[in-house]
Amino acid sequence: MLESKLTQLQNLFSQMERALIAYSGGIDSTLVAKIAYDTLGDRALAITAVSPSLLPEDLEEAKIQAQTIGIPHELVITQEMENPNYTANPVNRCYFCKSELHDTLKPLALKKGYPYVVDGVNADDLQDYRPGIQAAKERGARSPLAEVGMSKVEVRQLSQELGLPWWNKPAQPCLSSRFPYGEEITVAKLQRVGRAEIYLRQLGYQNLRVRSQEDTAKIELPPEIIKEFVVNIDLSLLVAQFQGYGFMYVTLDLEGYRSGKLNQVIPELGRELNLR
C-alpha cells in the first residue's frame, strides 16, 4: 500500500514536470520536497515563508533538511502580521495566513516558470478544522499527499523508509496556534512563546506546546511524562525563566498535550462547513 502511494506521488510529479513546494520544514512538506526532488531534480524548488510565527530554530532545521535532500531552497518574507484579519485571531485565522502565503507563492512560481504550487497537506488534515486548506485551494495549490490518501502515520513510515533522519520529528505548527481564538496576536507575544518553547526543548522536551493566554503560560506535555517533569525540573527556575520572557503566571496542563486542542471551542457546525 505504501509503495503504491509512493509510485502515485512520483507519477504525479512527473506529470507536473516543474513544481514549487510550499516548504515549512515540517515532516509533511519535507517528504513532498524529497519526492519532488527525487522525481524532478532541479525542476523542483522549495520555498520557505519567513515571518514572526516561525521559530528561527525551525527555519535553520528547514535549511539543513533541504540541503540534506539536495533540493534548491529559497526564502520569502510574508506579511500576515500586517493583516488585522489575521492578528485579531478569529477562528479562521489560518485562512488569512495561507491566503498571504499563496498570494506570495503563486506569482513567484509563475515568474520562475513553475506551473504548480504544492503543499504538505495530508489526508488526515482534511478531517480537522483547517480553514487554510480552503485558502490554498482557492489559489490553485495542490496537495499531493492528500490526493493519494496518505495519512500522517504513513507520512512518517515512508519518511523512515526513505532514510529521512527526521521521520519522527514532532509537529511544529506556527506559533500563532498557541493563542486562544479572539486574543490579539503580536510579534512580542509570538517571541515570548517561542523563547519559552526553545527553553523547554533545551531541557530535553521536544513534543510540547506552550499555550499563551494574556499573561499566563500553560505548558502542555505528553501525559506520560508530566509526573517525571514535575519531579525532575527545577520549577522555581523555570517560572523565573518564563517570567523573564514576559509571562506573569506559569501553569501545567494536567490533561497533557493534544494537537489542535484549542479547536475544541469551535462549534461542530463550523467544522462541518469547513469540510464541505
Rank of each mutant, 00 (worst) to 15 (best):
residue 8 Q to R: 14
residue 9 L to Y: 11
residue 11 N to E: 15
residue 16 M to D: 09
residue 19 A to T: 15
residue 23 Y to D: 10
residue 24 S to K: 05
residue 26 G to A: 09
residue 32 V to Y: 07
residue 33 A to N: 08
residue 36 A to E: 12
residue 47 I to H: 01
residue 49 A to N: 02
residue 50 V to D: 12
residue 51 S to P: 02
residue 53 S to K: 02
residue 59 L to M: 10
residue 62 A to I: 06
residue 63 K to F: 05
residue 63 K to G: 02
residue 65 Q to C: 05
residue 65 Q to V: 14
residue 70 G to M: 09
residue 75 L to F: 15
residue 75 L to A: 10
residue 79 Q to V: 05
residue 83 N to Q: 11
residue 88 A to E: 13
residue 90 P to G: 13
residue 90 P to V: 11
residue 90 P to L: 10
residue 91 V to K: 14
residue 94 C to F: 02
residue 94 C to R: 00
residue 95 Y to G: 03
residue 96 F to Q: 01
residue 98 K to N: 07
residue 99 S to E: 14
residue 99 S to P: 00
residue 102 H to K: 01
residue 103 D to F: 04
residue 105 L to C: 10
residue 107 P to K: 03
residue 109 A to Y: 06
residue 110 L to A: 11
residue 112 K to E: 13
residue 114 Y to A: 08
residue 116 Y to V: 12
residue 117 V to Q: 07
residue 125 D to M: 11
residue 127 Q to Y: 02
residue 129 Y to S: 11
residue 135 A to Y: 03
residue 139 R to H: 07
residue 140 G to P: 04
residue 141 A to G: 04
residue 150 M to C: 04
residue 154 E to R: 07
residue 154 E to A: 11
residue 158 L to G: 10
residue 165 P to L: 08
residue 171 A to Y: 02
residue 172 Q to C: 00
residue 178 R to E: 05
residue 178 R to H: 08
residue 181 Y to P: 05
residue 181 Y to S: 03
residue 186 T to N: 05
residue 186 T to M: 08
residue 186 T to Q: 09
residue 187 V to E: 15
residue 188 A to H: 13
residue 190 L to N: 02
residue 190 L to I: 05
residue 194 G to A: 05
residue 197 E to Y: 00
residue 202 Q to K: 14
residue 210 V to C: 01
residue 210 V to A: 01
residue 217 A to E: 01
residue 222 P to T: 01
residue 223 P to T: 12
residue 226 I to P: 03
residue 226 I to R: 14
residue 228 E to W: 06
residue 229 F to N: 03
residue 230 V to H: 04
residue 237 L to W: 03
residue 238 L to K: 07
residue 239 V to G: 00
residue 240 A to D: 15
residue 241 Q to R: 15
residue 242 F to D: 04
residue 243 Q to V: 06
residue 244 G to W: 02
residue 247 F to I: 08
residue 249 Y to R: 14
residue 253 D to N: 13
residue 256 G to P: 09
residue 257 Y to I: 05
residue 258 R to P: 03
residue 259 S to F: 12
residue 261 K to S: 15
residue 274 N to Y: 02
